[in-house]
Design a protein around this nucleic acid. Structure first.
Lengths: 127, 127
DNA sequence: CCGCATCCATTTTGATACTG
DNA sequence: CAGTATCAAAATGGATGCGG
């Protein structure tokens, strides 16, 4: 070993383990304040519950601010904080990585599934 | 909206959603080939099941190579591929982000838990 | 409109025992 | 040593109904 191993694997590594929607939401807030339902629309397929959960976590960790307007109907705005901007950069890094390597990863998967994944007796669930 | 929203949120965003140990393992393989039990030792607290799962996934996606030696006792080496090196950079980005902002995030959490966690008017549905 | 609560299904993670 | 199998527990995700 030439490097030091992480003494506290989970927390030390990521501070937070991003949920399924975390980075997506952060990227949607890139340069605009968005309302709850706007986020819900733009993030494709998120449930109300998960969006709420995601936003709460982001707020709790100081990545977004939540502004409530006591109007009728109510309105809640979400904005990235300075800290959130940094998380955004990370999110972009992932996005770039994904975009650049998706094809290669999927190829690797096909190869793997075709060889190792191949049980002695193949599943025959289709024509 | 000034940006386009992701049409395929999950896959498009990350290609893979890293498991709890994925980035840790990748970082351990930074510049050395490691054996299964070495990884198990250096990653703090991983079960052999999760390590196996993590390594299988990394292998499947083309991030690590798995080399089996038919010796007694058996020996299996894991190494980063070129693609894995790129994932390593991403892992390092997370690590740096975490290291630099952990304190701030934890402070934000304390503040949040101290205020929001306590509703102005406590719910009264119990004694 | 925002979002919490509840119930339920699925996924993920982990502890433990066993095998070549 | 390097796994697999099994079982149990916990986290996550979704559907629906209620409430300010």
């Amino acid at each position: 070993m030439t490097q030091s191993n992480s003494p506290d694997p989970d927390q030390a590594m990521m501070v937070v383990r991003p949920g399924k929607w975390t980075l997506i939401v952060v990227r949607l807030l890139r340069e605009e304040t968005l309302r709850f339902n706007e986020l819900k629309r733009y993030a494709n397929g998120v449930s109300q519950k998960m969006l709420t959960t995601t936003l709460r976590e982001l707020e709790r960790d100081g990545f977004v601010t939540r502004t409530v307007f006591a109007t009728i109907p109510p309105r809640v705005d979400y904005t990235l904080t300075a800290l959130g901007q940094e998380l955004l950069e990370l999110a972009d890094s992932w996005r770039v990585f994904a975009a650049r390597n998706r094809a290669q990863v999927e190829l690797a998967r096909q190869r793997f599934d075709a060889s190792v994944g191949q049980p002695a007796i193949r599943l025959i669930h289709s024509a």
